[in-house]
C-alpha cells in the first residue's frame, strides 16, 4: 500500500470533512467509524445500510466523499476491493490518531456537552 495514496486521502479529509472534528471524542469516533465503513462499502460495490437515521447520515457524508475521491484520485477506481479495504482502514487509523488519540483539544473528554 502506497503511503502517497494514504496521504492524498488523508489530506482531502483534513481539508473537507467537518465530521472528524465534532465536539467530543465519542462523537468523533462514531462519525469516523460510520463514514469510513460506509465509504468502504461504496468503493467496493457494496450497497450500504440505510435503515436507521444514523446510517443515512453516514451515507450522506460518505457518498460525497467517495464521489470526490473518484474524481480527484482516479487510481482508486482501479484497485482491488481488498486493497481499498486496507487503504480505508489505514485512513481511519490516521484520522483517529489526529482527531482523538493525539488531539490536544482539552474539551474532547468532557462528560457533558
Amino acid at each position: 500500500m502506497s503511503s502517497d495514496k494514504i496521504d492524498q486521502l488523508f489530506d482531502y479529509v483534513q481539508e473537507r470533512c467537518l465530521w472528524q472534528f465534532f465536539s467530543r471524542s465519542w462523537d468523533r469516533q462514531e462519525n469516523i467509524d460510520g463514514i469510513i465503513r460506509t465509504a468502504t462499502d461504496l468503493l467496493t460495490g457494496v450497497d450500504p445500510k440505510r435503515d436507521q437515521p444514523m446510517d443515512r447520515l453516514f451515507y450522506a457524508d460518505a457518498k460525497i466523499m467517495v464521489a470526490d475521491f473518484r474524481e480527484r484520485f482516479p487510481w482508486i477506481t482501479a484497485i482491488e476491493p481488498a486493497e481499498v479495504r486496507a487503504l480505508m482502514g489505514t485512513l481511519r487509523e490516521r484520522i483517529v490518531d489526529l482527531a482523538i488519540t493525539r488531539s490536544q483539544n482539552h474539551e474532547l473528554s468532557h462528560s457533558i456537552y
Binding site: 465534532f22 465536539s23 444514523m54 447520515l57 457524508d61 456537552y113
Partner: peptide, 21 residues
C-alpha cells in the same frame, strides 16, 4: 457549530436526531 453545536448534540443524545455539519 460554535454558537449552536450544543443543541444539535443534545437533540441527538435526547431524541436520536442525527447532526449533519
Amino acid at each position: 457549530a460554535r454558537s449552536s453545536g450544543y443543541i444539535a448534540n443534545e437533540l441527538k443524545k435526547q431524541y436520536g436526531i442525527p447532526r449533519l455539519d
